[in-house]
Computed example of a mutant assay.
Amino acid sequence: MEERQRDDEIEARLRLSLIAGPTDPVLGRLLRRYGHAREVWRAVVTGDRIEPPGDVDGRAFSERLRGLIGRARRVTDRGVAEARDRAGQFGARVVVPGDPEWPTRLESLGTDQPYLLWVRGNGDLRNACLRSAAVIGARAATDYGMYVAAELGYGLAERGWTTVSGGAFGIDAQAHRGALSAGGCTVSVLACGPDIVYPRSHERLFDEIVGSGVLVSELPPGRTPRRHSFLVRNRLIAALTPGTVVVEAGRRSGAMNTAHHAENLHRPVMAVPGPVTSSLSAGCHHLLRDWQAVCVRDAADIVDLLGELDNDVLPAGRPRADPLTLGDSARAVLAHMDETHCVAPATLALRVGCDVPALLRELGLLAAGGLVERSDEGWRRTR
């Protein structure tokens, strides 16, 4: 029954994503009211009378709801199947709230939480973001900024931390490359469908990210990027991580927009200082002077700050999971681990007899229960 309910929830969220863009004020509030997407979809597609929430203008809500009802009635089973098939061709999977791979930090977005996520890659999204930092900045970056971004990505990976960024030219790409060059995990949040490579010249970079990390998007397959998509996407970069680092940015830029989101979510904002004569460091200096952002020089500074705030793996006062309550797959993974020796995911997958993505999902679940932990050398049982 639970599996059937999950399938229905995925189907409903997929359909909702086809009739409305991210952060739709009507759908966000309806999901908060009903709790389950399948109930929201039923109400919308049948045209049930839905009273507007008390915190919105009733007329505007009703007009927007009528538009959603009209689009919902045009969504066909064929359209949903085509989205699934296209995602499957590129190895993208659907992750919804309640799944072990769903990052719980996204709940801080409230009614702006994504309906679902399309995920590509051998990494586990939630697990990758447990200890992570967003490293962002200008597309037209200077040589100084590019060097610093790569060093931050490399240094974070050396310490077992994940670099999250947007896959764009400049700072984003260098941060991803730095993490990959250290053999670490990196997450790229896309402003297009999971099957679209943008920018086109980053096809090889994205392939490398898929190999050891994650590409993630809230937009359905086939959706090309638009100017507004990047600004909406930025809230996910800020929400997935415990803190955001701006390497280079103008006073008005996408990176500053991401920093605003992080500030609104009460997450630490960090900035790398640059030459006072550089317009590409003007945003960083503004953050340092007027926002009281934390000045960082290297990955050690980032980890020193965020490591003290890291309580997502096992919050204080939360009991550890009882191994006897685990499913067969999780128990099999735990049986091939000990408290002394760390083991790499690929090796552990071979021992257990499963593929790496499935193993990482189980490790994420076990980590959430406080039963396993990750180190620079791999994974081991918690002492």
Rank of each mutant, 00 (worst) to 15 (best):
A140P: 02
T23E: 12
L180V: 13
G222Y: 08
A133R: 00
L334E: 06
A92W: 02
A358P: 00
R159F: 12
L371M: 11
G369Q: 10
L334A: 05
V210M: 13
Y144R: 03
G47N: 11
V187I: 09
D7T: 05
W102N: 11
A149M: 06
R227I: 08
D290C: 08
L18D: 08
A43W: 01
G166C: 03
L31A: 07
V296F: 08
D290S: 09
L265W: 01
P100Q: 11
A60W: 15
A133E: 03
C185S: 06
R33W: 05
G166I: 09
A140Q: 14
V187S: 13
E9F: 00
G250F: 00
Q113Y: 04
A175K: 05
T325R: 14
V276Y: 10
V95E: 06
W102L: 04
G137M: 10
F61A: 02
D376G: 14
H260Q: 13
G327E: 13
P242N: 08
A282P: 02
R32E: 15
L360G: 04
A249E: 06
T241H: 07
E158R: 03
T142I: 03
L265D: 05
L334G: 04
C354M: 12
Y144P: 00
R226C: 10
A150Y: 01
T277D: 13
R361A: 14
R233D: 04
L231C: 04
A321Y: 13
C284W: 01
T224M: 12
L348C: 05
R297A: 12
E203K: 13
P25R: 04
V232H: 03
S181C: 12
V276M: 14
V210F: 10
A128E: 14
R86Y: 07
S279P: 13
S281Q: 03
G54R: 14
R33M: 12
G54M: 12
G370Y: 05
H260G: 15
G91R: 05
R267T: 12
